[in-house]
Design a protein around this nucleic acid. Sequence first.
DNA 1: TCAAAAGTGTTCTTATTACACCCATGG
DNA 2: CCATGGGTGTAATAAGAACACTTTTGA
Lengths: 248, 248
Amino acid sequence: MNEFNEYFKSAFTVDNVIFGFDEGDMKVLLIKRGEEPYKGKWALPGYFVNPAEDLDAAAKRVLGELTGLRNVYLEQVRTFGAVNRHPAGRVITVAYFSLIKISDYAIQASSIAQKAKWHSIARVKDLAFDHKEILQACFNRLKWLVRARPVGFELLPPKFTLTELQHLYEAILETELDKRNFRKKILSMNLLIDLDETQEGVAHRPARLYQFDKEKYEEFLAEGFSFELKESKKKENPLRKNASPSFP
Amino acid sequence: MNEFNEYFKSAFTVDNVIFGFDEGDMKVLLIKRGEEPYKGKWALPGYFVNPAEDLDAAAKRVLGELTGLRNVYLEQVRTFGAVNRHPAGRVITVAYFSLIKISDYAIQASSIAQKAKWHSIARVKDLAFDHKEILQACFNRLKWLVRARPVGFELLPPKFTLTELQHLYEAILETELDKRNFRKKILSMNLLIDLDETQEGVAHRPARLYQFDKEKYEEFLAEGFSFELKESKKKENPLRKNASPSFP
DNA sequence: TCAAAAGTGTTCTTATTACACCCATGG
DNA sequence: CCATGGGTGTAATAAGAACACTTTTGA
């Protein structure tokens, strides 16, 4: 089959966009590159796929090697293949994304990663390669996902308050939601278990704590599901950019 | 940069899933391969990406070369990269899809395509490589798309009846819809222009003809949009497989 | 005059929106 | 006693679902 030889001179990588939520805003996990090209620059954790390795497996392995994150569920988003996106030759990259609870995982930089650190999405400046564009595409995907699946499950700690959950939705959708309508909707889904516990040590009325009902959540995933909630008109949010996240 | 040399030994292809609608069911454009591997087998129109060619451009070029289709809008769906999916070596493929009016285009097989022909999706058996899986993934994407965008525009001839439009939706969603509710919904969108013409030569009351209002359609795309309509309970459809198309 | 598909409205139910005040706690 | 965020209900509106008969044509 050597009539194809000229085509077998390219490479592909995987890049992972890992989202977390903390201190009221969305974070993304970045590494500081310790290897050329773009040595010293912040980048998405990604690397070459081995010759005999499936894409999904490669994404998992690379993520683990660079950041110490293991057992993370990764979903393919899109492939980026501009001709000159990599200085070493023709390299296309398959982007993966995931949502995790920041507190559940210890970040441990290694391999070509000098550092690995959570960054506020809003404050991410330029990144190595075309990683800024990849990050943006994955964030759009997340906006779509939050309307199609109860995403808090993946992002919040085991116990959380309804206000925390609402803040998460607001951070992802870049909008503000009406408190009462949000609670009515989310509680009517019966995905939350009221723990009959409350916050302690807060300088205001302590909030009830909830956890996700994993079984009901699985049911939902199985039968399809849609989360829709219009932003409230009461408080207009200057951060808001797009009324409806388009996919992809 | 020759520390990466071992990685630059793979190739990538693009595969196109072109959907059309005719005689009441969904079709996909396939080629009969005139080249090994899988010579003589039906396959999606796809081929290797050139070393200095963007992915999107490659998809367009390859589609044109194999089937004669030019000026088709293609959208990336997903990348397939199982290790042994191609016998010639490590080859991952980026899948693209499109919707076209069958009557608007002349199919002209050439290059490695012995033939190019529309096939009813329901009757597609096995295909070369992992193309059956790719087709299925793209059809799922189409199911999602039809709820997010008024898709008839791309698939129907310039003049069509409301019943034809309804049949299109039913074919994509693999369900049946209530006639009155469908008409109410689709007309309330104000995307259709009533041409004040009727069918001729049909052995029943002739239907009114409509065309899409291209300007309003662009507005809709710009501001986001959602088409939802539950299947009617009156007539249960045995073909129906999944209540809610999941994406991707 | 029959077969075949076109065309048309109403009622019921459910989901969404808008909106304002009192409550519990720590400092 | 004050500042802070927690918690709650209702009325008005809009959207969706169910459902059956009459009309127009060609054969």
